[in-house]
Design a protein around this nucleic acid. Sequence first.
DNA 1: GGGTATGGTGCAAACGTTTGCAGCGTCGCA
DNA 2: TGCGACGCTGCAAACGTTTGCACCATACCC
Lengths: 336, 336
Amino acid sequence: MVTVHDVARAAGVSISTVSRALASPERVAAETRDRVTRIATELGYRPNQAASGLRMGRTHAVGLLVPDLENPYFATVTKAVQARARAEGYEVFVADSDEDPDVEAELIGALAARTDGLVVASPRSGDAELSAALVGVTAVLANRELAGGSGAEPLEIPCVSVDDADGVAQVLGHLYALGHRKVGVAAGPSSSWSGSRRVAGLKAAAELRDVELVELGTFQPYFAGGTQAADYALASGVTAVVAFNDLMALGILDRLRHRGVDVPGEMSVVGFDDVQLATLVSPALTTVHAPLARLGRRAVDLLLARLRGGTSASSQLPVELTIRGSTGPVPAGPAN
Amino acid sequence: MVTVHDVARAAGVSISTVSRALASPERVAAETRDRVTRIATELGYRPNQAASGLRMGRTHAVGLLVPDLENPYFATVTKAVQARARAEGYEVFVADSDEDPDVEAELIGALAARTDGLVVASPRSGDAELSAALVGVTAVLANRELAGGSGAEPLEIPCVSVDDADGVAQVLGHLYALGHRKVGVAAGPSSSWSGSRRVAGLKAAAELRDVELVELGTFQPYFAGGTQAADYALASGVTAVVAFNDLMALGILDRLRHRGVDVPGEMSVVGFDDVQLATLVSPALTTVHAPLARLGRRAVDLLLARLRGGTSASSQLPVELTIRGSTGPVPAGPAN
DNA sequence: GGGTATGGTGCAAACGTTTGCAGCGTCGCA
DNA sequence: TGCGACGCTGCAAACGTTTGCACCATACCC
C-alpha cells in the first residue's frame, strides 16, 4: 500500500505538502502541486479512507437499510439513494433486514458504527425498539414517522413519505365514479406504518362517499399475499379491491385470472406505488404513482443537510392516481 | 462519541483491558471482563471502525458493483451478496454504475479505497479498461472472465459464472424437440460477456442440430429491447425466438400480444436467468434457471477466501432449463 | 537597507484502536 | 522460605491522515 510518505519521499517534500497538494491545491505552489499530483498518480496513491475517517471524524459514507432488496419498490429507492449520495461524494452501505425487526435493530447498530448517518426505509420494528436502536445515530426515516424519543434525548428524526391519504382518496374517488359501492381492501402487515395510513385514509374516504368498505384482512405485501387476498375478495361480494401495494395487486390479478374472473369486467383491482412491473402485466395495473426515486433522493438530501449541521424537517411527497386497464365500471348484475 | 477511554475510566481499568475484554475475553479475568462489558453496553460504546480499520489494515467491508440495481437479476445477486457477507462479518458497499463503463472504472476506484475487496458483477467495460481499474485491488468477477493483466502483475481474478453454453444448448434441444427448425436469437449488447457466450453457444448447438439460426440483432437487455426485437422476429419468419435474458423475453411476449400473435401457438419464446417475474406473466416464461443467489454467495466466498490468504479458482454454476407456457410445438403451416 | 507582510513548507500532534512487551502480584513447588 | 512460572494488567507505539503552528525566504514598502 502506497501512502503519503511514499509520495512525499518520491517528490522530495514533506507529507504535509502532499496532503495539501491533493486536498487544497490553492495552498501550495503550482510547481510543487503539479509534481506531487503527478507522482501520486504515477505511484497509484489512494488515500486511506480509514485514516482519513479517523482523523476527520467523518467517513463520508452513509447507510441504507431496507426490508427487502428484491422488492422492486426498494430496488428503486436504493438505486436513487445510491445515485444521489454518490453525487454528493458519499458511498452507501446497503443492508437488507429480510423483513425481520430483530435483524433491523442489529443492522442499524452495525451500519451506524461505520457511517456518518443512516437512511432507514420502511422499518418493521415497533416504535420503542426503533427509538432504542436509533439513539445516538443521525438518521432519516422513509415511510415511517417516529415521535420524540422516550428518554432524555429528543430524538428528532425527520421522515420522508408519500401522501398516502391523498393517494387512497383518489383511488376511492375513481372507483366511486365508476359506480363501485362495495370495495374490498387487502391490507398489508399491521406492522407497516404506510399500511395503517392507507387503510385509515380509505376508511375516511369511504365514509365521505358512503361507500361500503370491506376489510378482507391483512396479507403479506407480496405477490403471494395477493393470490391469497383474491379469494377473500371473491367471497365477499365486492366489485373492486384495493391492495396495499402493487405486488399484492399483481397477485390478485393473477389469481383472478386463474379463477376465470374477468378484470376489469367483473372485478376492478387497484395497487399502490406504481412499480415498473405494473405496466408490464395485462391488463396493466391502475395504481397510485409514488415518486420513489424522489423519495430516495429526498431522504439523502435530508440526511446530508443534517450531517452538514443544518436542520431538516419531514416532508411528504405528492402522489398521482394512474389509471390503466385493471379498473372499469361496476358490472351490471350482482357481483356474485 | 464514547470511546475505549470513557469505558476504561468508568471501569477503573486501562484502555488495553477494555479492548481485550471485548475482543479476546479469555485473556482477561472473568470479573474484570464482566464489569467492562457491562459498562460498555451501559455507556453504549461502539468501537470506531475507522480506528480499528486503520490499526488492523482491514475494514471488514466489501464492495459490490452492479450495472443496475433495478434489474431484478442484480437485485437478487445483491441480496445474496449482502446476506452472505453479513453472515461472515462483513458489511457491503453497493454501487450502481448505471451501465456506464466510465462510471464503472471510477466506482471501482472509490470502492477499492474503502473496502477489503470487491465483487464486480457483469462489468460493461472493455478488458483493457477493466484490467487497469482492477490493478492492486482484490476482486472477484461475476459473469466475466478476464485474462492475466497486461503489465507486470499477473492479475489473477477469479470469476464465477453460470454455464451459459449448457443453458442455451438445452434451449435449442428443447426447441428442436418441439419441431422448430428456424430459430431467432435476440442478442444482448455486444459488450456483454455472457451475451457473447450465449450467442456462441447457440450457434454451436444449432450447427449440431442442423437448425437455422437467425440473428435478429443486438438489443438493450431490458423490456424495451424485447419489444423492439419482437418485430424483427415476426419479420424474419422464425417460429421461435431465444432472448438474451428474461427481461427481453418479457418485452417480446408483450409486443407479440399487442400484435395479436399467439404464444406459444404461433411463436415460442425463451428467456434466460429465470428471474421471479418470469413466473408472473402469462403465459409463464420458459427460461434457463440460473442460480443467482448461489452466484452471489459463491462470489463472496471466493472473495473472502482470497482475503483470508487462501487462493480461489473460478467456478461455473450449473443451469437448468425450466419449461413453462411460452414454448410449444412448431405451428403446422408456414409461420408467415 | 531595515522592517513587515505574505506565501510556501515542515514539524508534530491528534483521531481511537490494537498489541508487543514489560511489570506486578500470586501461587506452586522444592 | 526462596525461586520460578504464570495470569492479569498497563504502557506505549503504531496504523495514515489532516491541520494548527512555526519557520523560512522572498518581496514589498517606506
